[in-house]
Design a protein around this nucleic acid. Structure first.
Lengths: 184, 184
DNA sequence: ACCTGAACACCGTTCAAGT
DNA sequence: ACCTGAACACCGTTCAAGT
């Protein structure tokens, strides 16, 4: 006889629900994410989820937050050009892992603490690059919008026939121009 | 006694189905678009749609095509800076009209004849701006990606708190820089 | 406090049948 | 050729009930 402290079926909480949802979306696509399928994966009935995520929309919102939190934190050890490149690389990788969830990033401001940190890293990089303080918000909006659109286009299928090498070159070309423009 | 040439219930065809679907999406949101609701709006049973759109996914694909065909054709009478501005304006307006459908543009290449014409107009504008022939595809991909991401962010909610004037200014700022860079 | 059973009002899709 | 009725296997969500 042993003490079943954390035993029986998986204790269910919000984090575990979102983990299961993201895994399901990755394996079988976003359409396969239903209250019932997520619950099934956790060994619980669909109605048990409502306490933790509100409803289906709340589950999807939580999924977007989880994705935001997967983005790499900015590394202050890097010079600003490398920090910009790390950011675009991180976005593209997240988009490739979760193409359908990634598109939902367009639907609301990235307001999670981790997302603020990532944005802060972009601010720092742009400041280091010489962008004046009062131009930072605008520069951040424009640049992150481009990076997001690029990663979304690549992962969701808009770039269709183009291979990764071409897209890498596109981005490298743009980043060189950008860095020239910033340094001037 | 009169001749009911075009009478009874609306004769149903693919174009009319997509019109009804787009109107429904605009009025009640994309979630309200179901095979049943579209059919109901046309006075027909859901099963009647299958002949024309294949299935639900085919209906949504058709919706994206309809949206692409709403984009304004490039006006060759305009100078290239005005043609670029007309393009971003057209994209933003389309996104505002159909925010949810607009996001689906990231999912596949814009391959409709009208979309090719629009892309051709962007090529022409960039060529007029002095972009060398072999750099046109890359320049077009990068610029249209930015415009698409910007319009999607604005319409779908990512820009959240920012008002139209701020976003207009963002875009104007970028376009001035872009035109300077191109003219150099 | 947390989970379930049963039920309700929906979905997309098929297939044989009608005209 | 084109549309329908009936049916099937699903959905999200509620609510009272169980422990």
């Amino acid at each position: 006889m042993y003490t079943p402290v954390m035993a029986r079926h998986v204790s269910i909480d919000r984090a575990r629900i979102l983990d299961a949802t993201l895994a399901l979306a990755e394996e079988e696509g976003l359409d396969a994410v239903t209250m019932r399928s997520v619950a099934g994966r956790l060994g619980v009935t669909p109605m048990a989820l409502y306490r933790y995520v509100g409803d289906k929309q709340g589950l999807l919102d939580g999924l977007v937050e989880r994705l935001l939190d997967e983005l790499p934190a900015p590394d202050p050890a890097l010079e600003w050009p490398d920090r910009l490149r790390a950011m675009s690389r991180g976005l593209r990788e997240a988009a490739r892992r979760h193409p359908e969830v990634f598109l939902m990033l367009f639907r609301r401001p990235a307001a999670t603490p981790q997302a603020r940190r990532t944005r802060g890293g972009l601010y720092d990089a742009l400041r280091d690059a010489g962008v004046p303080e009062d131009a930072l918000p605008r520069a951040e909006r424009l640049l992150s919008t481009f990076y997001l659109g690029f990663a979304a286009s690549e992962a969701a299928g808009r770039f269709g026939g183009h291979d990764t090498a071409t897209l890498d070159a596109d981005l490298a070309w743009l980043e060189v121009r950008l860095m020239e423009a910033l340094q001037r």
